[in-house]
Write a protein that binds this DNA or RNA. Structure first.
Lengths: 365, 365
DNA sequence: GTGAAAGCGCTAACAC
DNA sequence: GTGTTAGCGCTTTCAC
């Protein structure tokens, strides 16, 4: 603002008291007589005094600002998390700075650096999956409070994580299909570690580091394996469809799968992008949901209820993830953090019409 | 960050020069000898010096931070605008603070106040439509640079606006339907001023204040009237369907319309929410697109290409709106602003399959 | 209860 | 080219 802002000095002068007296009143700290308070408040109101948070931050060392770093706020999951974070941040007296990385480690590093220069009080970060997260570690080493969102990777074991329980989410979907009577359930997942590695983890607890350090897509496969195992069903590696993280890649993979493997009676896609691609693939093959195939998607999206039949999905508590991340972050900032800091929230099934009991012989076209 | 940050003094000491010498090197201002520069840069790197933007801002009066205030970042339109703004802000050296208002004038006022206290250099605001925007005017009066996004209302005539050309967007859609051969075109719009008021504006230029001060929903109706007028078609007020700003309200309104008015051969919905509701209503009535009815929606949404036939829509250049808002805002901040400051961007038709030439007698069920 | 004064980290005159 | 100094607006001892 170009025009000279009114400072505490202006207020003090008008009130006829000292700078510090005015400060005590305006910052509600220290003591002041009723008369002084009255005069100062009056002057402040008259002049339209607005405290300069910059100066306040210089003194106190706290900016009451936090940063959130995500791949892309246009992705509905992240915009919802941002919203949940933002609402709660406001309530707790924090402003929120936003940055997008497009999953580029360099941009992420630069964003973190800039936030640090701005002296944010803490950062919520959905990290780019990278080999050597040195930029993150550097910040943490300098005692910047950081809360991880959605994912974690080796090297960041000691940072608190707020995320959905990925394995559990897929397990829920798979178990739901099993409960409907399906035994040959295909899974559409991003490329991930070899199956043997993942199979060793089916018995692990949700917060087992070996599990939470895997990328979300791998954790989701673990949940699938766990559900099959619990039901006593054999794993057929041929039923695990690998795809890149794009709609077209997923569509292609699903179409190819449906062409070569007509025994599957159900399919679960493990993230939002793959869900869109899978749906297109199913449609391209001319299959009817749920009679020809039962389908459960991941993440609720508007289209899942615009198509017919509406698509059953596993939904993450997006805004609550943001709210939780804020809570954890503030507890660290205020030094009131108490272990455990990890928060793995449960996903929720939104049961609609795309998954049903298998129809005998349906896939035997 | 709890640990003592390294300051310019630490750097100067280590480099064996004065504070100001170090400052000159680090801020790339003023002159310094090669030797000094070398020593300072070296010391800074060794110590991991990170400039304190707070202190810098205190001195310079510029925080290099801007704020964006929108109804809700979860709405795809706003998250995309935010993205466009954010990318360009970064490139221009600004950080971005975000706030959601949920269309509540009090929350908006509070947000603006808080941003002002943070001493942001400027604000991009999608204002809550309100009678008396005093909080906004107060800020502007104090010379805070403000750019309006998407809408403007009486009292804010002097503030620059970055928006899609609402009237033109609807005109494009309506004209497209007319070009296909439709003559009885229904419009789904939010409740708006009486038709007579709007009809007077069909001849106005895009940036006519009388037009840009209307709420977007009203401007869109003007575009519809203009298209009909240009084609020499009569306006039948019965074909303008009024609805509240919710999917269910829109669905109900469309269903009722389709029941009582079977002469319409085409329908255009004038915003994203109404488009979803209209589509549901059309489906609930069992109509086939485009044979029973041609349909054009507003704002591209993922579901419009997930359903079959895919829905033709008018799309706003969302990210470009954000980018443009940033450009205008920075020009004001830097004092290089040159009239005209209003930017009305053109919407674009995404032609898909839900609109086609009318089929004779199709609606005569 | 109140005022004087120091100082947060940085920049920009200003002398040298 | 370099160092000294003042000061951005605020909070917070510390005497009185």
């Amino acid at each position: 603002m170009a025009r000279e802002a009114v400072t505490i000095i202006d207020v003090a002068q008008m009130a006829g008291v000292s700078k510090s007296a005015a400060a005590r009143v305006l910052a509600r700290s220290g003591s002041a007589s009723a008369a002084t308070r009255e005069k100062v408040l009056h002057a402040a109101a008259n002049l339209g005094y607005r405290p300069n948070q910059l100066a306040r931050a210089m003194k106190s060392g706290a900016t009451n600002t936090i940063g959130i770093v995500v791949p892309d706020v246009v992705i509905p999951f992240f915009s919802a998390v941002l919203r949940g974070l933002s609402d709660n941040a406001r309530a707790a007296g924090f402003e929120v700075l936003v940055s997008n990385t497009d999953n580029d480690a360099d941009i992420e590093a630069r964003s973190l650096e800039l936030f640090a220069e701005q002296r944010v009080d803490g950062i919520v970060l959905a990290p780019v999956l990278q080999e050597n997260p040195s930029a993150i570690l550097k910040l943490v080493d300098e005692e910047m409070p950081v809360v991880l969102l959605d994912r974690r990777m080796p090297g960041l074991e000691h940072l608190p994580l707020v995320s959905v329980d990925h394995a559990n989410a897929t397990e829920q979907a798979t178990s739901a299909l099993i409960a409907l009577g399906h035994e040959r359930i295909a899974l559409l997942a991003e490329a991930a570690p070899p199956l043997s590695t993942l199979q060793e983890l089916t018995a692990s607890t949700p917060n087992n580091p070996a599990l939470t350090l895997l990328r979300p897509s791998a954790q989701r496969i673990v949940g699938y394996l766990r559900a099959l195992e619990q039901a006593g069903l054999d794993v057929d590696e041929d039923f695990i469809i690998r795809s890149g993280y794009t709609t077209t890649s997923a569509q292609t993979a699903v179409e190819a799968f449906l062409q070569r493997q007509s025994m599957a009676t159900a399919l679960h896609a493990t993230n939002a992008v793959l869900t869109s691609g899978a749906y297109r693939g199913i449609r391209a093959r001319g299959l009817q949901l749920p009679d020809d195939l039962s389908f459960i998607g991941f993440d609720d999206q508007e289209w899942t209820t615009m198509v017919q039949p509406a698509v059953t999905v596993v939904e993450q508590p997006r805004q609550r993830l943001g709210a939780t991340a804020l809570t954890v972050l503030t507890s660290i900032i205020r030094g009131t953090a108490a272990a455990p800091l990890d928060h793995l929230l449960d996903a929720e099934m939104l049961v609609r019409e795309s998954a049903a009991a298998p129809v005998q012989g349906a896939q035997l076209r």
